[in-house]
Design a binder for these strands. Sequence first.
DNA 1: CCTTTCTCTGACCGATCGGTCAGGATCTGA
DNA 2: TCAGATCCTGACCGATCGGTCAGAGAAAGG
Lengths: 195, 195
Amino acid sequence: MIRRTPRTHGEILAAAARRFAVTGYKGTSLQDIAREVGCSKAAVLYHFAGKEALLAELMAGPISVLCELDERISALTGAAAQRVAAEGFVDLAVRFRGEIALLRGEFPELLAQPAFAHIQRISERLIEAMTGPDGGQDARVAALVLLAGIAEGCGAFADIPDEELRPALLAVAQRVLVTAAPPPPRPTLDHQHQD
Amino acid sequence: MIRRTPRTHGEILAAAARRFAVTGYKGTSLQDIAREVGCSKAAVLYHFAGKEALLAELMAGPISVLCELDERISALTGAAAQRVAAEGFVDLAVRFRGEIALLRGEFPELLAQPAFAHIQRISERLIEAMTGPDGGQDARVAALVLLAGIAEGCGAFADIPDEELRPALLAVAQRVLVTAAPPPPRPTLDHQHQD
DNA sequence: CCTTTCTCTGACCGATCGGTCAGGATCTGA
DNA sequence: TCAGATCCTGACCGATCGGTCAGAGAAAGG
């Protein structure tokens, strides 16, 4: 009586991840997943309550890590919160880039679902933290570009090993975020400078 | 006999843009668009050959500008190509951020369609140009994050006026891109592949 | 007036979606 | 051997999708 759902459960999950990564969540039908596994669509729905449950189980890992990150950040402010948010998000993106990639830009609509409502709030707090102590509009734009860029771009980073991707993304984050208000010595770019 | 399609054509187009911006391309049905206009679904299909034609007409502007940018870049190399690519893409994003936003992360699937195949190629060349003369993996990661971040993030920039958004994005681009490998500037991190 | 052209509608089509259901295998434990 | 739980299937459901079609209604021109 120990064997709950022998091997098909995991197989279906893996197949769903593969399909989602290729055609996106909405673009993948239960039929597609069933075909990938080599079983019937009804079998998929025997192991999982529905398509949404499939996604929820796939995203359980990154979501729990994201929640932990949110709690860590909520205890901080200013530059400390900014640094932890950036590093934490990079770590999360590197570790779960496969899972994040399979959402393929469907964040807005998926986040609109009540099941993922808290993710929406967390990402907003993440943006706020990444905006940093400067707090200006430029800093907020930078934070948004960084967050969206990492989230959307990490689908293209599948072939880069973790130990190379992490420092690369950290370097980008360090460069892009407005770390403070003080005037940096470097001139800001504009169209009219020497060629 | 002059009046081709009086005003409904433009009305339908505007309504489609509004709906696409809210629920995405795939997430918007012709019924939704018809409801927004206040006509029947058949009327929408009377003015437009199909849903795809609707999108194509909406994206005609940004696509033509993107093609121009591609041609301009193809005549350049190295740092010059990088600068033109970054500035050109920022300009494009600022100017057409409404149109870009209504794709809502559906780039991958839409680009997979044969009708948008050349866009795929152009974006790859854009990445290559933005990677810059350094050419290392870190530079490529930075370029990807920037491109994806601007494309995905500009949907959140609707309330920022052009004259504020452009310099903000240019500043981000200048910071994030690995500008060069030459001697004077700051050392690139962990990058032992030059001779 | 009638005819033609343009604009638009409601009904309808086939396909596909997520999901349900009755029941057939297959296995387990007594 | 039989009973019951587990695993899975094919058939089916209602909803919705993009798209078609015959024809109604209005406008224009003779």
